[in-house]
């Protein structure tokens, strides 16, 4: 039996429309945030959860973390119903909201941690052991006694992660954890998540708009749109389906006019020529052959399509 089981989940919100002129009552309309969503996640999996804004991602996370009760459907996480007995359930999960800090702003983060220890009723020995482990993995030693407000965004996010993992949750939800972080922080954060997933077997559900996060961390990805699951499977399989366009940057020894090649668009970029083509219509080998016939190549790079473009194409195709 899978660790997380979600069956036929439905949730709709009542939205008040703006009052129209002449009518006294405000019209209410229902918006389906989730319509018949089902999936399973095994213990220890690291799954990416993507979709455009308003697709229902955060509603799913809110339901799975026990904040929201769905209209209908079944959810079991480790054999427990999230909206059943809240206090018992949330002991086993951790949530990191990327833009919402849960640590205390004006006090040293170590003080925040020890308050979390009291909130989660963690025994002192277990707390010390876990804190040492996380401090080490997240490189927090130097900032433990610094108030949160004096930390950089990357340091804050690391402290937040530590705070939500102190009680050793079996399941961790991450909502946009790398938003606004610099590259070094992003890489360190991804490294840490891989470590936590591997060493402690923590199941991680990662919601993000940063496709690099997904690419680096998740083998499996779920795509949500209009409250429904549109794709569930291997991320690379998803990409290869939309990986239809490549770009070649080529620079010849001397100024050369390129003869027109069908299904290739050419533009000039500095001293190089930029060729965009589709490998399905024109095999790469054939294109290279043509280029070699044109002149002496000094330098050349082939780039796959940008992931964000692929995802944008995908959303477009799925009519989101």
């Amino acid at each position: 039996m899978s660790y997380i089981q979600v069956e036929h989940l439905r949730k709709s919100y009542v939205v008040r429309k703006k009052r129209e002129k002449g009518s006294l009552l405000r019209e209410k309309s229902r918006i389906d945030a989730l319509s018949d969503l089902s999936f399973e996640i095994g213990k220890g999996e690291l799954v990416g959860y993507i979709g455009p804004n308003g697709a229902g991602k955060s509603t799913t996370v809110k339901i799975l973390s026990g904040i929201l009760t769905p209209d209908s459907g079944n959810v079991l996480v480790g054999g427990r119903v999230p909206w059943g007995s809240r206090k018992e359930y949330v002991r086993h999960i951790g949530v990191v909201f990327g833009q919402r800090m849960q640590l205390w702003w004006d006090v040293p983060i170590l003080d925040s941690f020890s308050l979390l220890r009291d909130i989660y009723r963690i025994s002192e020995t277990a707390y010390q052991k876990r804190l040492a482990e996380l401090t080490d993995a997240l490189q927090l030693e130097d900032i433990l006694r610094t108030p949160l407000r004096l930390l950089s965004l990357g340091q804050r996010m690391r402290a937040e992660l530590c705070g939500s993992l102190l009680h050793r949750p079996e399941l961790l939800f991450l909502d946009e954890p790398t938003i606004g972080l610099d590259s070094i922080s992003k890489l360190a954060l991804r490294e840490f998540l891989r470590w936590e997933n591997r060493e402690n077997g923590t199941t991680i559900l990662l919601t993000t708009h940063d496709m690099e996060d997904i690419h680096a961390l998740c083998s499996r990805v779920m795509v949500l749109g209009h409250g429904q699951k549109l794709f569930d499977g291997d991320f690379s399989a998803l990409l290869s389906r939309y990986d239809t366009v490549r770009t070649v940057l080529v620079r010849f020894e001397e100024e050369t006019e390129l003869p027109g090649i069908p299904s290739v668009s050419v533009s000039r970029e500095g001293e190089s020529l930029k060729l965009v083509y589709s490998p399905k219509e024109l095999p790469t080998a054939e294109l290279l052959e043509r280029l070699r016939q044109t002149g002496t190549i000094r330098e050349m790079t082939i780039q796959p399509q940008n992931i964000d473009h692929m995802i944008a194409d995908m959303y477009e195709e799925m009519a989101l």
Binding site: I67, R86, V90, R91, I119, Y120
Partner: peptide, 18 residues
Amino acid sequence: RMGQLDTLLIRPRGIVTQ
């Protein structure tokens, strides 16, 4: 308004206490 109530809901303590 700021959604802080949500962060209280994910902790294993009573809401009024928190």
